[in-house]
């Protein structure tokens, strides 16, 4: 007779103590570390002697886009993921690869048309470098958030984190690539937009500057920021 309520109370204690695990829905327990797949990082770890420590720590399996290939690029992987629709990664990757091919063709054409050797050296032929430059050029430094004060919604300029600004930059570049005639291929338009953005011109850069101008116009509301 006495054991039952005791048991029940201990069960209650258990339910009160239970916390949802930090790793959410992951199939791995929280002590599993993420894989270090980059070649440079691995050599660094071996040099510093950290690799010995990590050798027997349980590690997650690498995702299918995480490779130690020299062609791997974190930012471009992210771009592929942002471009992807309905989980169709094959198509998204194909589009990005074709974009890079187009950039290369356009830049090579520019290169061969130039007669001057000095000017030729200035043309960037690496499509990856152009994509990186385009993304850094389109990154905004502020954004607007709607904040309600006294029944009126104000657009208040607030600082943004680096990751958010990177996301907005890629989003605007992709949107600029999608604004085209029906007959034009996405990868062609996207390549032109990326080259324009790398030269600090084009629609995506215009969008960033518009945002900055609007932030400047609403600078008086900046102290409304709260919570």
């Amino acid at each position: 007779m006495f054991t039952r309520p005791l048991l029940l109370s201990s069960k209650l204690e258990l339910t009160r103590c239970f916390k949802f695990p930090q790793n959410g829905m992951s199939q791995y327990p929280s002590y599993y570390i993420k894989p270090i797949y980059s070649n440079d990082k691995q050599t660094d770890l071996i040099k510093s002697g950290e690799a010995q420590k990590l050798a027997h720590v349980p590690t997650r399996a690498a995702l299918n886009d995480q490779t130690s290939s020299i062609y791997h690029d974190d930012l471009i992987c992210l771009l592929v993921n942002y471009l992807m629709k309905d989980g169709n990664k094959l198509l998204a990757r194909d589009l990005v690869e074709k974009t890079m091919e187009k950039i290369k063709r356009v830049q090579l054409e520019k290169y061969h048309k130039l007669a001057n050797e000095e000017e030729k050296e200035k043309v960037v032929l690496n499509p990856r470098a152009i994509i990186h430059q385009a993304i850094t050029n389109v990154k905004p430094i502020l954004q607007l958030t709607p904040i309600k004060r006294g029944g009126v919604t104000y657009q208040v300029p607030v600082p943004i984190t680096d990751r958010r600004s990177q996301f907005l930059s890629m989003k605007w570049l992709i949107e600029a690539g999608n604004e085209k005639e029906r007959t034009v291929r996405f990868y062609d338009q996207f390549a032109y937009e990326l080259i324009d953005a790398a030269n600090n011109t084009g629609r995506a850069v215009k969008k960033k500057q518009d945002l900055h101008k609007q932030c400047e116009m609403n600078r008086a509301y900046a102290h409304y920021r709260w919570s």
């Binding site: 502020l142 600082p159 900055h212 400047e216 600078r219 920021r225 919570s227």
Partner: peptide, 16 residues
């Protein structure tokens, strides 16, 4: 309140 970096923001606006 989480209002921070207002002075820095005003400097950025002025410069821009």
């Amino acid at each position: 309140s989480n209002v921070c970096c207002l002075y820095e923001m005003s400097l950025v606006f002025g410069c821009l």
